[in-house]
Design a binder for these strands. Sequence first.
DNA 1: ATCTACTGCAACATCAATGTTGCATTTGAC
DNA 2: GTCAAATGCAACATTGATGTTGCAGTAGAT
Lengths: 181, 181
Amino acid sequence: MRADAARNLSSVLRTGARLLAEDPSTSMAAIAAAAGVDRTTVHRRFANREALLRAVFQAKLDSAERVLDEARLTEAPVPVALHRYLEGIIPVAREWPVDTRRMMQKDPEASARREAQSARLSTFIQRACDEGYLRADIDAAWARAVLDALVDSIAHQFPAVDPPQAADLVADAFLRGLGVT
Amino acid sequence: MRADAARNLSSVLRTGARLLAEDPSTSMAAIAAAAGVDRTTVHRRFANREALLRAVFQAKLDSAERVLDEARLTEAPVPVALHRYLEGIIPVAREWPVDTRRMMQKDPEASARREAQSARLSTFIQRACDEGYLRADIDAAWARAVLDALVDSIAHQFPAVDPPQAADLVADAFLRGLGVT
DNA sequence: ATCTACTGCAACATCAATGTTGCATTTGAC
DNA sequence: GTCAAATGCAACATTGATGTTGCAGTAGAT
């Protein structure tokens, strides 16, 4: 039953993330039904609705953190790291489509983690500026926002584009749009 | 009192749009309180919560339609029309930050209007492709998504940037990112 | 000054979501 | 086969949001 429990928990989290992304006010009953488990089972795993949300956020943050680690944002050459980051983060955005910025306000711990990850990416963008991959007149914060927007767009509005091609599209639009080439 | 009523109604719509953008499940009580009117007054104006949402959407669609008209997307030169559209649509996005795509599912009439407006913009993007302002290998749907993403980003994450400068930033990133220049 | 429309306030009914508990049943581990 | 953990099911209490109504007060139009 250990295996069953783990499988169900994971299913609830993924289903919950999907439904909550479409409608943040989705009821726990709807999530439970979509995940194929009873409503009370969900309540036994997660004390509150907030606890469920926290678990979803944590799962997304875990995945994102792994991507940031493996992209080697501080060591690898900018174009290489950028592409590796994109190819990794786009599936994460698709699997956990919840908007972390909006929904984590009431979870200070998760917010702090998110801030830390955000800072890592901002540092990378700054490095791209410093090393001349972006035009000198480009504001780093704007560059950062553009990158996030492109990722969200390709991840959610073009789910059929596979990660490598999606990464190409985003990197191309980003480096051409704000870069020197 | 006609004047009072109209002013209060407008205030409720704007306040509601702002709160609903932050949290789509904001209660009518919270909206009424933020707008400085009694809860029952809101219920007297809008039969349902859905009616309130419809009114917000309609207000946004009205503003957006005016922008589309005045931009002369089919007649003016592409760069001119683009800039005029951006300078007009960014304030609209800021004043009505509600996400029309997600929240209008249950309002077929508003959805249809939104589709029509979306089609006008898509047609314009297609013209930009045909006239050589965008690279030949760029998918029109992707270009459209990029433009929307840039507008949302500058509108909501950089509220301090005034519309003309914001339009410059978006047009620059868009035309450089996907264009031939 | 009067009338009308609008508002705030209080009270009420309703409903959906949340969260809890007890019990029978299932299922994997040993 | 036995045991323990987990689940489904039904029932219940609680809470917050929604929507309604009656009444008194208020402000603008005439």
